[in-house]
Simulated scan of single mutants.
Amino acid sequence: MVLKNVLLIVKDIDRSRRFYQEVLGLMVLADLGRKVLFAGGIVLEESPPWEDSLEISAVYGGNDMELYFETLDVEALRERLAASDFHVEFLVGRDEDENEVIRFYDPDRHVIEVKRAFC
Rank of each mutant, 00 (worst) to 15 (best):
G40A: 04
A30Y: 06
L3E: 10
F19E: 04
P48I: 01
V6Q: 00
V114A: 03
V10Y: 03
V59A: 15
N99L: 11
S16C: 12
L72H: 10
A117Y: 14
P48E: 01
V59F: 11
G93D: 14
V111F: 02
Q21F: 02
F90R: 09
V43I: 11
W50V: 08
D52A: 15
E45A: 05
I13P: 06
E100A: 11
L8M: 10
F19W: 07
K4G: 04
E55F: 10
F118L: 15
L37V: 14
V114S: 04
L77V: 07
S57K: 14
L26I: 02
V28Y: 02
K35W: 13
V101P: 07
Y60G: 02
V111H: 07
I56G: 07
G25I: 01
F90P: 04
D12W: 09
E45V: 03
D106S: 09
M65T: 06
Y20F: 07
G25P: 02
L54C: 11
K115R: 15
G61R: 13
L81W: 07
V36F: 01
Y105T: 10
V43P: 00
R18H: 13
N99I: 08
F69R: 03
A82L: 08
L24M: 11
K115Q: 15
K115L: 11
R94L: 07
G93Y: 14
A83E: 07
L54I: 12
